[in-house]
């Protein structure tokens, strides 16, 4: 797509500018700030908030990927087959749990801060990845599987050299869904005192400062958009 070639670098530059040089946007945001109120969020550097936001999402998504793919491999082997219906039910029920509610319920159990946010992101992140990994591992072309058996590969060799690589694009789609949800839920983590970009939006909401709200909103929006876009590109490359 041609428009992507121009748009993508532009959005990356815009995001970097908003995070690293927020002062540049003072004239644009000033009309939205209350009179004599601050225009640019300065209680914490946007850069450090972005890093801590991404750190939370990365840690939660990586561990969720490892655990979810592990579980998916287990229930698609003969030894774990008895758990397949149950695991499907759990994923279906789990996905109806609102992410915000999961976050709120983690607080009584774990207290405030990054802990409950990380746990909520991890738990919620498991579901789409597991769902897609199971689908990916169960819908492999039978001809390929027969061929793999025919050339004498052991079950573990088949898993590593045939099944997982073939299921990878589908698994990645699950990872992408999970990362996008995690990016959004992490924003709400600020309400339980996790350090994320949501802090900027919430500070704006509490002080009626629309400039903060827009600043935080646009940065998190761009971040989610670019990461989503990057993962889609990766999927396309892998399945080509």
């Amino acid at each position: 797509m041609k428009s992507g070639l121009i748009l993508r670098p532009f959005l990356v530059v815009l995001l970097l500018a908003m995070v690293l040089r927020p002062v540049w946007f003072t004239p644009l945001l000033a009309p939205l700030a209350p009179e004599n109120g601050p225009v640019i969020y300065e209680r914490a550097s946007l850069w450090s908030l972005t890093i801590s936001h991404l750190g939370l999402v990365l840690a939660a998504s990586l561990s969720a990927t490892v655990v979810a793919v592990g579980l998916a491999v287990f229930v698609t082997r003969p030894i774990g087959a008895a758990f397949l219906p149950l695991s499907r039910t759990v994923t279906n029920i789990g996905q109806t749990f609102p992410p915000v509610a999961v976050l709120a319920l983690a607080v009584p159990a774990l207290g405030f801060g990054a802990g409950p946010t990380l746990v909520a992101l991890f738990l919620y992140g498991l579901l789409p990845i597991f769902d897609n990994a199971v689908t990916g591992l169960r819908t492999l072309p039978p001809v390929t599987m027969d061929a793999a058996r025919g050339i004498g590969l052991s079950p573990s060799q088949r898993l590593r050299t045939v099944e997982l690589p073939l299921a990878l694009p589908v698994i990645l789609t699950g990872v992408r869904l999970s990362v996008v949800i995690a990016l959004g839920t992490a924003t709400i983590g600020s309400t339980v005192a996790a350090r994320t970009l949501g802090e900027v939006i919430i500070a704006g909401l509490l002080t009626n400062n629309t400039a903060f709200v827009v600043q935080g909103g646009v940065i998190t929006g761009l971040l989610a958009l670019l990461i989503h876009d990057g993962l889609v590109l990766l999927e396309k490359r892998l399945s080509a």
């Binding site: 959004g184 924003t187 939006i201 704006g204 709200v213 935080g216 909103g217 998190t220 929006g221 958009l225």
Partner: peptide, 8 residues
């Protein structure tokens, strides 16, 4: 777009 950002 993250929900909090969209609402904001």
């Amino acid at each position: 777009i993250p929900s909090l950002a969209m609402f904001g």
